[in-house]
Design a protein around this nucleic acid. Sequence first.
DNA 1: CGAACTACGGCAGTTAATTG
DNA 2: CAATTAACTGCCGTAGTTCG
Length: 427
Amino acid sequence: MTGNVSSGEKMGRLDIFDRMRGVQENTPGLKSSKDINIEPVKNRLNGTIITDGPDSILKVDYSYPLVYTHGDVALKDVVSIDPGLLRVLLPALPRSLDLSLNDLIFFDLETTGLSGGAGTYVFMAGFLKVEDEKIKTAQYFLNNLSSEKLFLMEIRDRLKPGSVLVSYNGKSFDCNILKNRFILNGLGLADRDPTHLDLLYTSRRIWKGLFPDFSLRTVEKWALKFERTGDIPGYMIPDIYFQYLRGRDVTEDLCGVFMHNRNDIVSLAAVLLKQLSIVRYCARFDRLNGINNPGQFNPVSLSDMLINCNYHEEAKKLLKSYTDDTEVLKRLGLLYKRQKLHRDALVFFKLLIEKTEDFSEYIFACIEMAKLYEHRLKDIDRAIFYTEKVWNRVRRQDYFYPDRASVFLNDRAHIEKRLDRLRKKQA
DNA sequence: CGAACTACGGCAGTTAATTG
DNA sequence: CAATTAACTGCCGTAGTTCG
């Protein structure tokens, strides 16, 4: 898969060059691209043309009814987001800034490629914001290349300072491409980098180990139960735009790109709401109210995120309600060990020894028991007991799976050494 | 006393994955 | 072939302990 992608992108780079040349050959000079007929798209989507002197771009507005659900997420909840919960996902959120939700800006760009260099244009920018208790999207479309400056200025006007950006992989992709376009058009970037929540990274943490990958499409399907029908796949999007620039009638496809972009930004809002419902469930802020089932999540990651925001007690409570998970037992043990609550740590490492099916996890838990008894509780006999326990288990493993013995060679040597030392100490 | 060992936090460097 | 981030890896200094 990875190999295919990278070779495909190499091809894509050459393709873009070819296609740009095609644009220039078929339409004599960029100015004539103004003649491209955008009317069919404008009419189909009920858009408006924004003009400034000779320049013009297309804007398409859309408003969602408050009853709209995206997959199993009710979008209306976006009007009442708790900044305290949001801070668990975005610790950088300024504490001073009281977040009236008008300050959240969901956005996504469509571009002429993935490479991100100076040759990549932004031709569509979709925004979602909450206004007057309504969910409104606004999409800007660069319908001729010579109006790029106007296009960029309209985008910049939406990114008011003090607002919080929400994107998917936007920190590395969208923002940087946009920055490039601003620089190339002599438009100097906004004063300083705004607070930016990139849902790619929160998704990877919250659903770690649960989904096959973390593309927005997969997260939609597995976390939101939202599946797209008739969606334009991303790799086709640059091509559709180039065909449009060449003057071909791609009204149908272009409307598909608008739909694709709008679904992307609505999914951003839905993913954020889903993640917030998981955070709320884990922190049990609404212990007394009915808690709706937020679906699956990784309890260890969530406890990390809670601890990161100083919700230590909530994190412990959460982990203690997931002790069927051996990763949770391991984390609880390490947590109490770091706090020097050795007796508590012992309880969880012991549970881990009993519960785990994983051999290296078993080895780990036994060695932790031995360490705690030897160095903290000064009980050499018990330390020897657990070291012998794991030593015998390793030998048993060697006997039944002689071909796999080398895998645990390091562990073997380590355990042997520990046992020697403990026996000398005991004598 | 001082050498040797153990555990561990901090810190830098590396890797994998996503975006049209 | 880029930028970003979490997670992992390896290295180093420190603290604490045990021996010769």
